[in-house]
Amino acid sequence: MTPPSLGCTMPPHRSPSSLKEVARTRHDNDVSALPVVDTRHHPIGVISEADLL
């Protein structure tokens, strides 16, 4: 079963990501937050602009 879409796609990104990589991906895709997923790609959280400050 395919998980529901939130209407956007993010480029594949290796894990773990540095905060610099997260900030760049967020900026390049003009989004205010990125999902945090586990090894099975299940959402477990969100990292937002506030988390980077």
Score class of each variant (00 low, 15 high):
D30H: 15
V46E: 08
P4L: 11
L6K: 01
V46K: 01
L6M: 12
H41C: 11
L52W: 06
A50R: 12
P43Y: 06
M1N: 14
L52T: 01
V22C: 04
R26I: 09
G7Y: 00
R14M: 09
M1F: 14
R24H: 12
P43W: 02
R14Q: 13
S48P: 03
A33C: 03
P16S: 05
V46A: 01
S5Q: 03
G7K: 02
P35V: 04
I44H: 00
S18M: 04
M10L: 15
R26A: 07
M1S: 13
E49C: 10
S5G: 09
L6D: 02
A50G: 14
V46N: 02
K20T: 09
G7N: 01
S18G: 02
P3C: 08
R26E: 01
N29K: 05
H27A: 12
D38K: 06
L34K: 01
A50T: 10
A23K: 02
R14W: 06
P16L: 03
L52E: 10
P43I: 04
T2W: 11
P11E: 13
P4E: 13
G7E: 02
R24M: 13
P11M: 01
G7R: 00
R24K: 15
I44T: 05
D38E: 03
L52S: 02
A50E: 07
C8Y: 15
D30V: 06
E49G: 08
D30E: 13
R24V: 14
L6H: 00
H42V: 06
C8G: 11
S48Y: 04
P35K: 11
A33H: 11
R14Y: 10
G7V: 02
P12E: 08
V31Q: 03
S18D: 06
L34S: 00
L19V: 00
I44M: 01
S32D: 15
V31R: 03
M10E: 04
V36H: 00
K20P: 03
V36T: 00
S17D: 08
P4H: 07
G45R: 09
L19T: 05
P4V: 13
G7F: 00
A50F: 10
K20Q: 11
A33N: 05
S17F: 08
D38R: 05
T9P: 04
H13R: 15
